[in-house]
Design a protein around this nucleic acid. Structure first.
Lengths: 198, 198
DNA sequence: CCGAGAGCCGAACGGTCGTGCTTTTATGAT
DNA sequence: ATCATAAAAGCACGACCGTTCGGCTCTCGG
């Protein structure tokens, strides 16, 4: 990896951490330059616009998420165990040892992009979210064919429900500072599984 | 109502609409002045800082929400009917005829305040959210004493779960533009009720 | 109906933002 | 070791931000 690629990766790493707390819009080139020890213009040269920096952050987030959450969870046995592994890792990604300083990057960015005008950044992010939900639905579907879940259960509805549990977890934990947030998430997850079983 | 109070109310009304799309941080005094036909400084004189403007917007949002969602729903009979009325109105507030141009103001603001440093704005908003969740739990509790729901059901867990359903609804509808968002929310709500019944 | 005070405006401030340009410094293949 | 080139810095720009201030205009109670 050349010098340029190396610093670019380091900048994106720090940018992801920063964006998890202040969001993609709150991410500022000057502040990012300070934290990486670069000058504003020196950093700017790596991305030729702020939009490309934001796209880079989304890419970096998707890659990190796949590497620390999805891929390890996919090693668990098909069906319910794999779903549990995914949920556990997602909780750790939100608030635990895998978490960025501002919690889940996607939960934060979703709030500021939901009413943003159409553009490359919004579209790339929406695609990442769709991919994630599709993946959850797929994992759930494999649970149906394993006989862990009812055959008439709706995988996409399950993905929607699970997304709600995790969004509420982020809401209760990060915003309301509710110490029971994780317990509530686990309770809700168990209820979802119970309702899905044959 | 004096002239000053009148324009102040009109400004807050427009500010709430604007904040529902661009958020409390994205709400800018100059743009707000343009849309209300005031000058920047003329508008600024009504609030003596941007922070007080933001506090005013939160207050206005809480009042509007209470008036158009909560109070009408409380007219429904205690227990499950009241809970249904609350949910129905909340869906209309999110996306229907009661909705602000940017959807639910609270869902949007929650995303940008969850990692904000402590301060009056954050604290006032958190209090509003807590009040809302407490109200949901109270309505659910009345459903227990009416015999509509199991006596050992946890009202606060229900409020957490319902919050998840609505956050996921906002996520699916606003960000992903999923046409089935409302159906999914209703399905999830029915499942919550089913699980809570005796 | 008149005068005090509220309401509002125009201009300007210091600050920060994203973004170009030019110049200096570091890299790495020959 | 040399030298083309990549990487970073320095500096300046226009735009927009929240905020201040002095003066103009309208409102409304006595």
């Amino acid at each position: 990896m050349s010098k340029g690629e190396e610093t670019r990766a380091a900048v994106l790493d720090e940018a992801l951490r920063m964006a998890s707390t202040v969001g993609l819009r709150g991410l500022t080139i000057g502040a990012l330059a300070d934290r990486t020890g670069l000058s504003k213009s020196g950093l700017f040269a790596h991305f030729r616009s702020k939009e490309q920096l934001q796209l880079g952050v989304i890419e970096s987030a998707a890659e990190t998420f796949a590497q620390t959450v999805v891929r390890p969870a996919l090693k668990a046995p098909r069906g319910e165990p794999r779903l549990r592994a995914l949920f556990d890792r997602k909780l750790r990604w939100d608030d635990g040892d895998l978490a960025l300083p501002g919690g889940c990057f996607f939960a934060g960015a979703a709030g500021e992009l939901d009413d943003a005008p159409p553009g490359p950044v919004r579209e790339r992010f929406v695609q990442a979210e769709r991919d994630y939900l599709d993946m959850v639905a797929t994992v759930f579907r494999s649970g149906i064919s394993e006989g862990h879940f009812r055959a008439d259960a709706d995988p996409e509805q399950f993905a929607y429900d699970l997304q709600g549990v995790l969004l509420s977890h982020h809401h209760a934990g990060r915003l309301l500072a509710d110490p029971k947030a994780e317990d509530r998430a686990r309770t809700a997850f168990e209820a979802l599984l119970r309702a899905a079983r044959p």
